[in-house]
């Protein structure tokens, strides 16, 4: 299998706080990698580094055999890295369909003159984009909701729309930041199936931050565990589940108050 994404000794500091310390990750194509860890472990920070939101302080990020260190967000996106946000960040006063069209922005070309003249190539491009956006709308199960303003959609649908918007980028790597947050068990189960469907039907890799262990353990091919900005474990869901370091990170070391973060158990 070819390696899609690789981080080599990636580090990120905020003042005196080391949010990510020497992170080495490898992600092959068409794989779901679960990313777990307690609150504040650096999971979302890692997403922000991968998508160019934060500049990184050390190490390198290799995506499709080229370094993407220091590239701006819109560039990493056009290279094929798309993401969703932990707290939904749709464009509220745009319709669902328009939100998806924005995701397709980097795959379109029309400039100012094309937009004003609406010449044949622009018209063709727009039609194509609308068609694709409609397809994606159906794919995520929002058929017929295209003209609804994003902010008026129910919560679960907003999560789905955010995924559709990310998929419009035509990514080879999809970063999902807690996609099931705030969902009830039924919705969670549906979305879990849907994520697997995305991977198999669209043939892409998914990096998944998730707190619901049933989801992570259920669909991840491999799981990486972060704690205090350090990678503490990696392996199949089974291996990670049994790893004493992981259990400690989540539950604290029983009886030891000397530990760096002993939790009274």
């Amino acid at each position: 299998m070819t390696i899609l994404l690789q981080t080599k000794g990636l580090s990120k500091r905020f003042g005196g706080l080391t949010a990510l310390n020497n992170i080495n990750l490898e992600l092959e194509s068409c794989v779901i990698l679960g990313l777990i860890g307690p609150n504040g472990a650096g999971k979302t920070t890692l997403f922000n580094c991968l998508t160019g939101v934060y500049p990184i302080d050390g190490g390198d990020i290799i995506f499709e055999n080229r370094s993407i260190r220091g590239l701006k967000s819109h560039v990493t996106t056009s290279l094929g890295i798309a993401r969703t946000f932990q707290n939904i960040r749709l464009f509220g006063s745009m319709t669902a369909l328009e939100n998806i069209l924005v995701g397709r922005h980097c795959r379109m070309k029309a400039g100012v003159w094309g937009a004003i003249a609406m010449n044949r190539s622009t018209l063709k491009e727009e039609k194509e984009a609308f068609g694709k956006a409609d397809e994606l709308l159906n794919f995520v199960g929002l058929k017929g909701q295209g003209d609804t303003l994003a902010k008026n959609l129910p919560y679960g649908d907003q999560r789905r729309l955010e995924i559709a918007r990310a998929l419009a980028v035509k990514p080879s790597l999809l970063l999902l930041d807690e996609p099931t947050a705030g969902m009830n068990p039924r919705e969670t189960a549906e979305l879990t199936r849907f994520i697997e469907q995305i991977r198999t039907e669209l043939d892409l890799s998914i990096l998944l931050i998730e707190h619901d262990m049933r989801v992570v353990m259920g669909i991840s091919d491999r799981v990486t565990v972060l704690d205090y900005g350090v990678k503490i474990a990696e392996g199949s869901p089974e291996e990670v589940r049994k790893n004493p370091k992981v259990i400690e990170a989540y539950l604290g070391r029983l009886g030891t108050m000397m530990g760096k973060r002993a939790v009274t158990a």
Partner: peptide, 19 residues
């Protein structure tokens, strides 16, 4: 669409590929 996305949420727009 790029302008309006930028107006709605500049950071999200950047991550969705808008310069």
């Amino acid at each position: 669409r790029a302008w309006i996305a930028m107006r709605e949420d500049q950071d999200a727009a950047a991550v969705m590929g808008i310069n």
